[in-house]
Design a protein around this nucleic acid. Structure first.
Length: 279
DNA sequence: CCCCAGTCCTGCGGGC
DNA sequence: TGCCCGCAGGACTGGG
């Protein structure tokens, strides 16, 4: 499930193939399944982007942004199972989109592959892009948020801190897996109302967010047992070996060595925590 | 403001 | 062994 570290890894993996290259063409993939959400339609996308130079590739929260010289940008949301690949995809039947590039006379391709097809692909103008990423629709990036922003944002809601962490308007980039890992690192109980966190806890939450996400990027993200997430070269990430609580219900807490990892459900999602470490 | 259930989707694993 | 069901969840929507 691509969250910030997985999307960052994808962006780093495809950046060299795209930046500075000319997008000579695009192709709709070979999927025989229901088409993914694509806006505008493929023909219009092709008309706008053909023969444009790619000026940059970046990440915004859990989205991949590919900028073109005509000030349009592709915005890709991988959601659950979307992947950006420079190598041949795992299977050809879930291919959703192909960018065909030329740089110094050499051809290359980047693919969007998505098993479940919940991902989205849009080509937007600069104005539409600004609208998508407006502050009232997307909070600060989890890796760029300051302690002051963190305090201010969590003070404004009495929702459980875990639920607030998943709200992309509060802070952008964290999903279900890293929310549990971050709260465990910070020593904060997931059901605690966000606005009751002391300044000390806010500082710990802020530091744990940066630490966990930075570490996960270093390990190129988490590939779970469902096996769908992979980097641009179609290799597994390895941060799953560093998980301390996620999907570990019933096992001993690796931090205190005495507590047992519990599983609860919040906002219809699983939360994992150690009641001894997290107060 | 906040919560909940439902929606999209595929693959996998538990239970019978 | 095979089949059905439930579960996984990111973002969004509609109702309370």
């Amino acid at each position: 499930m691509p969250e910030l570290p997985e999307v960052e890894t994808m962006v780093r993996g495809i950046r060299d193939a795209l930046t500075g290259a000319v997008l000579v063409d695009v192709a709709p993939g070979e999927s025989r399944c229901r088409p993914i959400c694509m806006e505008p339609d493929f023909k219009t996308i092709r008309k706008i982007c053909r023969n444009q130079q790619v000026t940059g590739v970046r990440r915004r929260a859990k989205r991949i942004v590919i900028d073109l010289e005509n000030s349009h940008s592709f915005v890709i949301e991988p959601r659950m199972t979307g992947l950006m690949l420079t190598q041949d995809p795992p299977t050809r039947d879930h291919l959703r989109f192909q960018w065909i590039l030329e740089y110094m006379g050499k051809r290359a391709s980047v693919w969007f592959w998505d098993q479940r097809g919940l991902g989205t692909l849009r080509l937007v103008s600069r104005e539409q892009l600004a609208e998508m990423f407006a502050p009232d629709r997307l909070g600060p990036d989890a890796l760029e948020m300051t302690v002051e922003e963190c305090r201010e944002r969590f003070r404004q809601t009495q929702r459980a801190v875990k639920v607030a962490l998943l709200d992309q308007k509060v802070v952008a980039g964290i999903g279900n897996l890293y929310a549990s890992e971050i709260l465990h690192r910070a020593g904060i109980h997931p059901v605690r109302p966000a606005n009751t966190l002391s300044l000390v806890k806010i500082r710990r939450l802020h530091a744990a967010t940066a630490e966990i996400l930075t570490e996960a990027i270093r390990y190129e993200g988490s590939t779970l047992s469902d096996g769908t997430y992979r980097n641009a070269l179609n290799h597994d990430g390895s941060y799953q070996n560093q998980h301390r609580v996620y999907a570990k219900a019933g096992s001993r807490c690796p931090s205190c060595g005495r507590g047992t990892i519990e599983r609860i459900v919040q906002a219809q999602r699983s939360t994992f925590y150690c009641a001894r470490c997290q107060k």
